[in-house]
Design a protein around this nucleic acid. Structure first.
Lengths: 338, 338
DNA sequence: CGTTGGCACTCGCGCGCGCAGAGTGCCAGG
DNA sequence: CCTGGCACTCTGCGCGCGCGAGTGCCAACG
């Protein structure tokens, strides 16, 4: 177990390094933080911290920088979440309030997060899985062609075109629309398959095939969780990554384009509370030199999607976590209202 | 007027520089292109080209590189559009064919363009302005709350929530839905205001206010051209910009985040045919060291939106133009089918 | 007059050197 | 266990030099 002072030394190292982006030495430490001990003592502590793998020196006889393990300890034990100030809260709220539709909410959230954290922001669209159906609309595009529009309680709209084997009359369509909505409106996605199971039985034999086709398309749409989308912003902040970034920025940009990877990443993060993945803790290789701070957000009591930021491992964790948490909270509020 | 050979020299310089990314000298030129003259002659030509402002030397006694003006001449007079090969065409088509909805079409288009050109791709969603209404759907969320869903012939779906002053009955809603659709379905957006003008008159005095509110929201949605969205991809290709890119990549990333700027940029481009904006020809400062190749695409005979790529001024213009044109053509096809 | 070979000149770039400065590890003393 | 001192080790930086690519100019030639 590390002594209290050594933990303080680690904290000081992290804070200084995050601020200056430069390896920090024993002398500078004692000057900036009044630890009450001499540089020589700090040197001993640093040697111990290095033995334990919390810090490292890039080159012999340079200062120390925190390792992933060091940041981990810092985040877990040494740092709190820095709450937003009142003006910041007001700014967040008023910025999000102007949104006109779901796309706009997500777009504004991304901008906001990117601006607050000065890092890359990632916001997942509210997921379908836990949502409920608000309405299902069917329209005839052509005699044997139906457009299916699904509207969720989070305001999301999905549409599909269904090609039917046989022509389908307007009255039958209206009938199906009415029956469908009376059964599934307000219900959770997970319950829908069970609720519509016997629907085809209520129709003429001629129409049953078409009804089944429409229903299975609906079910497909519900299941298509992989259709989860996300929005990204603040990539220009990548240029502040560091002096060496030509090499490090490339894989990050590539990772950000791979929405599938990001969705997986967010999905792996814990369902409740904030998750911080530091450096090599990220399974995806391109993000090995970055940290991901993510949290779930939702319209009600439950999280329906996640949002977060991607930044260098050398980031201001308390501040970033504070911003992420605050934004998630307010987005949830906005969603609940609409 | 420049002699024929001097134009050939310029073409050779552009081609070599695009290939090697290094200033090109007179000797190298005569070796790689058989111009039939000696390096000394080429030197004279180069001096003339430099006087005219088509090429420049980064430092005294280095090779020459083309200026924006040089690229302009190259694009206008010296280079054609390189057509895609048959296998490439097939690949494009099959890649786009798998798309399930509009979002997917746009997403695939972006990926495709980015991959083909190895640059940043920008695809505008099919615009509302020239589209026609396929269907308008109204649903009651609450007694005094209506959701308005607009479906266009390009497959785009827009939704708005309307807060009404007074409660609005289901029957009145159904009535409005029916009347609305019989009037506007299949009509162009531009015609809609005229067509619904007198609709409130058909309703009870109590409901007229609400009907007007709904209608004005609909009109707003139609007009909201500024709501034009776009998708971007291939930003990782920015890292291939050049050795000096830390400085140059930053403003480009910033510009790409400013969708408003990009939309304006695309909007300024000519309506028919391909537009190439080179370096300082771009009004937006951050894109002064890039070229933008854009073209309109559409589901029928008319262009409904634009797409293009953003890359370094030193790009393979014929190849890029070929790819952009081909992709636009196939996307148009796909949209027409759906 | 356009083209050509020759020639002197100009610079940018890479390389090696040496120095200063920051930081460390270790040790002996309090 | 803490502290001051000391020798040591690197990295980064500034400087100077030489190479080589590329140019501009000129005189000669068809």
């Amino acid at each position: 177990m590390l002594s209290e002072r050594r933990l303080q030394v680690l904290r000081a190292i992290v804070q200084d390094y995050v601020g200056t982006e430069e390896p920090v030495g024993s002398k500078a430490l004692t000057e900036r933080h009044n630890l009450g001990v001499s540089p020589a003592t700090v040197r001993n502590d640093m040697a111990a911290l290095e033995d334990e793998g919390f810090i490292a020196q890039p080159h012999t006889s340079a200062g120390r920088i925190p390792t992933d393990k060091g940041y981990r300890l810092f985040v877990d034990k040494l740092a709190g979440v820095k709450p937003m100030t009142a003006p910041e809260r007001r700014a967040i709220q008023s910025f999000l309030d102007g949104a006109v539709d779901l796309d706009d909410v997500v777009a504004r959230t991304v901008r906001l997060l990117a601006q607050l954290t000065r890092q890359v922001a990632v916001v997942q669209y509210p997921s379908l899985t836990r949502s409920t159906v608000r309405h299902v609309e069917l329209l005839a595009l052509a005699p044997a062609r139906v457009m299916l529009v699904l509207i969720t309680d989070t305001g999301r709209v999905e549409q599909r075109v269904v090609d039917c084997a046989a022509p389908f009359g307007e009255t039958a369509l209206a009938d199906l629309r009415a029956r469908l909505n009376s059964r599934v409106a307000g219900r959770r996605f997970a319950d829908v398959p069970r609720l519509v199971e016997d629907l085809p039985d209520a129709f003429e034999a001629d129409d049953r095939g078409t009804v089944s086709t429409v229903l299975s398309t609906l079910l497909e749409t519900l299941v298509e969780e992989n259709e989860e989308r996300l929005m990204i912003g603040g990539t220009a902040n990548l240029t502040r990554f560091g002096h060496d970034f030509p090499l490090t920025i490339r894989p990050v940009l590539e990772a950000l384009e791979e929405h599938v990877v990001l969705l997986k990443l967010l999905g792996e993060a814990g369902d409740s509370g904030m998750t911080v993945r530091i450096g090599h803790e990220n399974a995806y290789e391109g993000l090995n030199s970055t940290s991901v701070v993510s949290v779930g957000y939702g319209s009600g009591n439950e999280a329906v999607a996640k949002l977060g930021v991607v930044g260098p491992t050398r980031m201001d964790y308390p501040g970033t976590m504070g911003a992420v948490r605050a934004v998630a909270r307010y987005v949830g509020q906005i969603l609940a209202e609409s």
